[in-house]
Design a protein around this nucleic acid. Structure first.
Length: 404
RNA sequence: GGUGGGAUACUCAAGUGGCCAACGAGGGCAGACUGUAAAUCUGCUGGCUUUCGCCUUCGGAGGUUCGAAUCCUCCUCCCACCA
């Protein structure tokens, strides 16, 4: 069979990094069919309409989708505008604010701009689940609800815990997984991918496709949750430990450099386009001392900056980083301000946006964190006379100030 | 519907009339050390007049008092138990 080898390569690329696949055999069948008849298959992934600012955590899924596109998959990029409105059960009953049509559209646009840096637009269908969920009649809702028993619902870890400990569970929360599964019925998806925390909801799609006689049961593929910069909690915007895909090259580079060495390998596995043998080789080289771990981290940072910006931006960002942090040199770009003088140093820091308040400035002065023209400020009462100064607070905050 | 309990700074959580800008932990910021980090140690962590001074904070609004986060009244929101 001439296809066998291709199929095996595709399979290993697709499997890579995944936490769990239900079932592997089904994927193999879909691939075989693709290579023999050219018939594509559909890969669904759902996204929340409220947060169009993607970070690297989201790109774990996106890159997996892109991998599928290389091997015959058509991506169903589902924007959960309906389910997003009611909110996924999280243990806390919180009503989400309802987004208007315009807001959803605007968010979707913003998604597309970011997502198509990774996905192939030719092989992507963008869909909104309000299109069908918003039109369900109450009869259809009841029918949907009849497909699953309470006992089975309570199997979901989150529900079970809350039920046992006597915390309340709203009836509407039961509908969330049902709706998500129903999406797969409507879209006739062959595969759905999501985070490991989505297992219950993903499996619901499988169950409902059977219950509605769709003629297929979607493959469920789970990707691990990417840890944030702190290496402990999952990457999320609200925790502030994220790297946004739209961040500028220097920030992105510096953020990646700030992760721990252990976490670096995790990022390699989940984010790098390097092959598994290449990464294994790097690990070995670091272990036996032929490759410096910092260099390994730089390579990762460059690769990721290049993906979202450009090759030039990536190497510039690396130079800038080493200039500022390693050689303790000054950055090439820094904000400039003109201030009326003479002025007390603490005030000047606030004026230049380096400090939020004079009280904070005073504290940092006392801590020895403030530098003028790279020299530590010893005198807390220092007055700046007319002239040009480079002010610095800590290692990261710089400003060029002209005192008039 | 009834009865109790609770709401404190970014988060958790002490404090129950003056010693409270408010213990402690986490987080954050900064310093030292490094390979940018991480780990470790140290300091700081409401604002303002250049600060041994003043102002605003303890769910909201009033009140008692020389003095309240602490006591009283009303309100808002959460939670538990019973229906």
């Amino acid at each position: 069979m001439p296809h066998t080898e291709k199929i095996q390569t595709a399979l290993s690329e697709i499997r890579r990094g995944s936490a769990e696949i239900i079932t592997d055999e089904q994927i193999e069948k879909l691939l075989t069919r693709y290579y023999e008849t050219g018939e594509p298959y559909y890969v669904k992934a759902g996204f929340d309409p409220t947060a169009p600012d993607l970070h690297l955590g989201h790109t774990v899924l996106l890159q997996k989708l892109a991998a599928f596109q290389k091997y015959g998959g058509i991506v169903q990029f589902l924007i959960g505008d309906f389910t997003g409105m009611i909110g996924d059960p999280t243990g806390k009953s919180q009503t989400r604010k309802k987004l208007t049509q315009e807001e959803v559209k605007a968010n979707a646009k913003s998604y597309e701009k970011q997502v198509f840096k990774i996905l192939d637009p030719e092989k992507t269908v963008v869909v909104f689940n309000s299109d069908w969920l918003g039109k369900l009649t109450s009869y259809e809702m009841i029918e949907l609800a009849s497909k699953r028993t309470v006992a089975r619902m309570l199997e979901r870890d989150d529900f079970e815990k809350r039920f046992k400990s006597g915390q309340d569970i709203s009836i509407y929360e039961f509908f969330y997984p049902l709706f998500q599964g129903y999406d797969s019925v409507v879209l006739k998806s062959d595969i759905e991918i999501g985070g490991t925390d989505q297992k219950f909801n993903l499996l619901m799609g499988r169950h409902l496709q059977r219950a509605y006689n769709v003629g297929k049961e979607q493959v469920v593929m789970m990707m691990p949750i990417l840890e944030g910069l702190d290496g402990v909690q999952k990457m999320s915007k609200s925790l502030g430990n994220f790297i946004g895909v739209t961040e500028d090259p220097n920030t992105m580079f510096a953020k990646i450099m700030s992760i721990s060495d252990d976490l670096m390998w995790r990022y390699y596995d989940l984010l790098s386009a390097r092959t598994i043998p290449q990464i294994e080789k790097m690990k070995e080289d670091v272990a036996n001392g032929t490759l410096h771990p910092k260099r390994a981290k730089e390579m990762l940072a460059e690769e990721i900056v290049e993906r979202f910006h450009s090759k030039e931006a990536a190497s510039e960002a690396r130079e800038e980083f080493n200039k500022v942090f390693k050689q303790k040199d000054l950055p090439t770009d820094m904000p400039q301000y003109e201030i009326e003088g003479p002025i007390w140093i603490a005030k000047a820091l606030v004026e230049a946006g380096l400090e939020p308040s004079t009280s904070q400035a005073r504290r940092d002065l006392a801590a020895g964190a403030v530098r003028i023209d790279q020299k530590k400020v010893e005198d807390k009462d220092l007055q700046l006379e007319a002239g040009e100064y480079i002010l610095q607070v800590g290692k990261k905050k710089f400003a060029k100030v002209k005192v008039k």
